[in-house]
Amino acid sequence: MIRVEELEKHFGALHVLKGVSLEVQKGEVLVIIGPSGSGKSTLLRCINLLIEPDSGRVFLDGTQVNRRDIRPEWVRQQVGMVFQSFNLFAHLTALQNVTLGPIRVLGTDPTTAGAQGRKLLARVGLADKADAYPAQLSGGQQQRVAIARALAMNPKAMLFDEPTSALDPEYIREVLDAMAALARDGMTMIVVTHEMGFASEVAKRILFMDAGRIIEEGSPEEIFHSPKQERTRMFVGKILR
């Protein structure tokens, strides 16, 4: 479904990604962990081309998509993204946030988009908040609207960039539940998170990244309980404590 080969990215003098390769099968959930500054967010953004990689190849369904002749907008329509800081459109209601993409990008007519949008909001448990503005919602509710917004584009895969790190502890559960439900429905997902419970429950594989490289890959069991690399051991030790 998603394949990345030898991805390189520099920000000025900073070498953020040093030849990262990975592959995610259809319906698979891949969790990426690693210290801040290890290049996790950059990697996600290179996959949906929010950031243009310096070199390397990104494949979606077997087609290389980081090419001059492919519009990045076309790629982004098919790969949904959920951000750490929600980034809901502040001037639009929850429902309008969800329907903007279908109406303006896919050209769905507003009535159909509205009906679909309400269904998606119901799916994340927010049927009654359709007309609320982002500033009137809790963090957990905002993040669930953001998930619905990404789903509205009917994406082939979803990227989550630390979706619960900005949340108060009381709201983390509801967002993780929504994500777990999504995974059960067979969505292909790449999730950057440090929620070990979620990772063990939902993910088959976990990648540990540090300093722009993938250091170790394994099942949740292996990564959390018997990591092979010293750096993985140190990092896991810190977050499990």
């Binding site: 949906n48 907008e73 993204m81 809901l88 459109f89 917004r149 584009m153």
Partner: peptide, 20 residues
């Protein structure tokens, strides 16, 4: 983040300006 989110759902540069 508003621009990033609008680009992430596939809006063009002008679309992000116009609607967001």
């Amino acid at each position: 983040g508003q621009v990033e989110a609008s680009r992430a759902i596939g809006l063009s540069r002008w679309g992000a300006m116009r609607y967001i």
